[in-house]
Design a protein around this nucleic acid. Structure first.
Ligand SMILES: [Mn+2]
Ligand SMILES: [Mn+2]
Ligand SMILES: [Zn+2]
Ligand SMILES: [Zn+2]
Lengths: 159, 159
DNA sequence: CTCATTATTGGAAATGGTTCCCATTATCAA
DNA sequence: TTGATAATGGGAACCATTTCCAATAATGAG
């Protein structure tokens, strides 16, 4: 009845060691926060959350760790147009592959998975075609829709 | 045999006046550069090009004008991950709607229109669905593929 | 055309997210 | 346990973009 991870650390330890990275308290805490988070956090958001658990953390280390995680493909880095990068754990236990709906009025971001199957299917074909034609090794894609959320549309429409 | 624009200024003068904006030499020069450009220019790129034609221009005005143009939908603003915004004239005389292929190795960007019809058709359906479900007024979308161009793939593969 | 109104301008300074630097510390293989 | 060295944190540097404001120029009324 024991969990099958009895005795070993969290899932990401293996990935880290595999890439030659050391396991540190700071990195553990950052992954912890990312795993727990359901929103799209900025580096400072993450720094503050980690800081309350592990006060020795430095903002610089947060940036460094996020860069490593992004390189390893464990987190995704987004630009939603508010001047700071946003991070979220890539496809994992909780989250599944999704795209974003961004309100240009209030910067609210909605994760959507509707139509994701059709989209992914078309994307696969497109990727294949583009890879062949332009000799590109495609590793990732970004799809975002921009517009006004209900509240912002009302606000603008009412004036 | 005269051009049908005899006597009136360039095409964007109407758009500007319609929005209550004044026509200035700086704005004319910026639009000129944007119309002529075929690459994805940064604000500084534009500033330098305009400066050689109209030396009185200031970088601040370039930023201001680009913001106006983006708001009016005449130019599109992109983030290709190199730390500065890139601008291109929206669907116009020369350019047609297209998406981007971004090399994460050297930051090269390729405009592609392959599959654009299928993509746009799916996007339309997706937009409709998302608008209804999330009550969003969608005005725009962004699609980018990331990967390594042939040169960068070779460089990494060879090591 | 002349003039008054006021949007626009350029330059300098401020902003703020991110990166760099480096002396100190912590990890981990041997 | 210990040595090699990866990782750290904090302050300073970086740099694209904004802010500020006095000077200027575009526009419409007369
Ligand atoms: Mn998301
Ligand atoms: Mn383009
Ligand atoms: Zn909104
Ligand atoms: Zn490349």
């Amino acid at each position: 009845m024991r969990g099958r991870n009895e005795g070993m650390g969290p899932w990401w330890h293996g990935r880290f060691r595999g890439c030659g990275y050391r396991i540190t308290a700071g990195r553990d805490a950052i992954l912890d926060v990312l795993t727990r988070a359901n929103k799209h956090l900025s580096a400072e958001d993450i720094y503050l959350k980690v800081h309350s658990i592990y006060p020795a953390i430095g903002l610089t280390s947060v940036y460094r760790t996020l860069e490593i995680l992004a390189d390893m493909g464990l987190v995704l880095k987004f630009d939603f147009g508010d001047g700071r990068a946003r991070y979220e754990l890539a496809e994992g236990s909780k989250s599944s592959h999704h795209h974003h709906l961004v309100c240009t009025g209030c910067n609210r971001v909605i994760d959507y998975t509707d139509f994701i199957d059709e989209e992914v299917e078309l994307l696969k074909r497109t990727e294949k075609g583009l890879s062949d034609k332009y000799n590109f090794r495609i590793t990732n894609h970004l799809i975002q829709f921009y517009g006004l959320c209900d509240k912002c549309a009302k606000k603008k429409g009412g004036e």
